[in-house]
Amino acid sequence: MTKTSPLSKLYIALVFIFLYAPMVVMTVFSFNGSESTYIMDGFSLQWYRHLFNDSITMNALKNTVVLAVISSVISTLLGSAAAVGIYNMKNKFLKSSVMTATNIPMMNPEIVTGISMMLLFVFVGVLMNRTNVLGFATILIAHITFQLPYVILSVLPKLRQSDPRVFEAAQDLGCHPVKAFFKVVLPQIRSGIVSGAIMAFTLSLDDFIISYFTNGPDFQTLPIHIFSMTKKRVKPDMYALSTLIFVVILILLILMNVAQSNSDKKQRKEKGEDR
């Protein structure tokens, strides 16, 4: 099964070249000596310097991170609680309606999700006689809303895998249900919560379409800023920014990968010792 023909290796390599061609181009042109994103003209670091001195871009970067942290914390708390609630729901009809509502943001095209939320905010704004309702609060609500299904759907399977008898045993032994939940259930679903939180965070960082319709002029995120920059002729500083983001993500992924393989080894070792 593990035998790979050279032809299939070549095919894998070709697909990777296709996936990474824009990244390579972007990195090369971020060191361009001139303003062009088409013709290379010498090597320079000026675009990186330019980037760090650009207060609008730096502010957008800060906004993006702030938004991602706050929204992912809220959606993780709310989503994990919702998953526990949905899992324990007795009413079949209510359960399936809640699950349908949860699936809507995942099935709908992002543009429809963005527009529907914008219309709600505008409508409420009209009721309150305010014209500029769009701002930090609306983009925060929108981000929490599109992250929630991902958190719920990564916690629910862990709850299904968990053993309900342990929770019952804890209660039979005199543990209060709330305490039993934190002592017994939470450790069993922790990995689902963590992966949901990571997903929520990264989705928020990278979201453009939903932010585009729900953001206000006083709170711009990085993707929104990049969008307005690419409306004009882009200078290599945007490429420099993306190259930096690329490097950061690459390092994070490598670290995660190493941690993962270490814990795998540890688990295998522990299992071996148990037997």
């Binding site: 824009p22 990244m23 990085l222 993306s242 983001i245 690329f246 993500i249």
Partner: peptide, 10 residues
């Protein structure tokens, strides 16, 4: 995980 705007632009 990278801005799809920039990847498309490049």
């Amino acid at each position: 995980w990278m801005s799809f705007l920039i990847r498309t632009y490049s």
